[in-house]
Amino acid sequence: MKIFGIPIFPEQASTFAKDVDALYFFIFAVSAFFALAVAVSVIYFGIRYHKTHDGEIGARIEGNLSLELLWSVIPTVIAMVMFGWGASVFYHLRRPPAEAMHIYAVGKQWMWKFQHLEGQREINELHIPAGQPVKVTISSEDVLHSLFFPAFRTKIDAIPGRYTELWFEAQTPGSYHIFCTEYCGTNHSGMIGTVTVLEPAQYQVWLQGGGVEGTLAQRGAKLFNDLTCSTCHLDSGQGRGPSLKNIVGKTVELQNGSLVMVDEAYLRESILNSQAKIVKGFQPMMPTFQGLVSEENLVALIEHVKSLSPDATTAAPATGAPSAAVSTQKPAAAEKK
């Protein structure tokens, strides 16, 4: 929206935009009402009760309990409405639907790297189809960043050592800003990009155009061989490491008897800190790959492993500790069921 050619309101390009803006206008209206009410009374009183002669004093009014209670309770009620509405929008923002298309993003000083499952890799550009929920899983290679799509009204910090995620469903084809909103050093303001929303058909065409290296999972499969993972993780289950076939989304028992759900966080941890949680019945002999696999290759490997479990729905990433036993947020885990 523009007034005199000055943009004053961002485009509404996702399904959230309308929800968030509705909330915005509600709070705006409430705020405007109270601000005006106070402003008008203050100015009116200033004129009406202006001092007329020296030595004049105001009426002695010490207070009024029912008025005090009234203007304590009313703001409380309004605030609770705001909280409830805001929380429900937020809950929605944080729950990607199961059928969401999956994209990986890596923040790095000072660029955004995106990887599609089909293999396309983009820097500071992102192409997505309209009318399709898209889930972006984000990590960082160095310091904190924050991936912000103003037209979609959503953002999340990129935290080194963890996965975070956001999702949106773009509606209107077009090009929109991508910003980094968490200060990340010298060229923070250069860490911007463009997200291009395409009609689904156009998106398919765009997909065909790139993809020289094969899909993300295929790249992962190649890495799986190059890093000699394949010599131990045999599909038969007879190797020195457990078979990775059909394990994603399953629960496995560890050496110490505890159970763990195989999701992205567990896979990530097992690659980087291989001996943190060893599946029961196997020797702790896998080397760690900390520092040997980049964040991009890591997601390729994870995607490869996930492709070995065709039936599993996408496991939610962890937002817990980098390598400890904490895993998915509770609501995330609950929703998967």
Binding site: I27, S31, V89, L93, S146, K155
Partner: peptide, 17 residues
């Protein structure tokens, strides 16, 4: 009053930073 916008979860995601 603008603090209310920022305390509201759904809006703060967009407005933060």
């Amino acid at each position: 009053l603008t603090g209310l916008f920022l305390a509201t979860l759904g809006l703060d995601v967009h407005m933060h930073d």
